[in-house]
Amino acid sequence: MGFVGAALGSLAGWYLGALVGVTTGVVLSMVGTGAGIWAGRWAARRWLES
Rank of each mutant, 00 (worst) to 15 (best):
M1T: 04
M1P: 04
M1V: 06
M1R: 01
M1K: 01
G2W: 06
G2A: 11
G2R: 05
G2C: 09
F3Q: 06
F3G: 08
V4Q: 07
V4W: 12
V4T: 10
V4A: 11
V4G: 08
V4H: 11
A6P: 04
A6E: 05
A7I: 14
A7E: 06
A7G: 12
A7V: 11
L8R: 05
G9R: 00
G9L: 00
G9M: 01
G9Y: 02
S10L: 03
S10F: 12
S10I: 09
L11K: 15
L11F: 15
L11I: 13
A12M: 09
A12L: 10
G13H: 12
G13N: 07
W14D: 03
W14E: 03
W14Q: 03
W14T: 06
W14P: 00
Y15I: 02
Y15C: 01
L16W: 13
L16N: 10
G17Y: 13
G17M: 03
G17F: 13
G17P: 05
G17I: 04
G17C: 09
G17Q: 10
G17K: 11
A18I: 05
A18C: 10
A18R: 15
A18G: 13
L19Y: 14
L19V: 11
L19W: 13
V20E: 14
V20D: 14
V20L: 15
G21D: 13
G21Q: 12
V22E: 11
V22P: 14
T23W: 15
T23I: 07
T23P: 05
T24D: 04
G25C: 11
G25D: 10
G25R: 09
V26F: 09
V26W: 03
V26T: 06
V27C: 00
V27N: 01
V27G: 00
V27P: 01
V27E: 04
V27F: 04
L28V: 06
L28G: 09
L28P: 03
S29T: 13
S29A: 10
M30V: 10
M30K: 03
V31F: 11
G32E: 08
G32Y: 07
G32D: 08
T33V: 02
G34V: 01
G34W: 01
G34C: 07
A35G: 14
A35Q: 09
A35Y: 07
G36W: 01
G36D: 04
G36E: 00
I37Q: 06
I37H: 08
W38K: 00
W38A: 11
W38G: 03
W38V: 10
W38L: 05
W38Q: 09
A39Q: 05
G40R: 01
G40Y: 03
R41F: 14
R41D: 15
R41K: 14
W42G: 02
W42T: 14
W42N: 11
W42M: 09
A43V: 09
A43C: 01
A44F: 05
A44E: 11
A44N: 05
A44R: 03
A44W: 04
A44H: 05
R45F: 12
R45I: 11
R45E: 14
R45M: 12
R46A: 12
W47Y: 07
W47G: 00
W47A: 08
W47V: 03
L48P: 00
L48F: 09
L48A: 13
L48V: 06
E49C: 01
E49F: 00
E49A: 10
E49G: 00
S50L: 02
S50R: 14
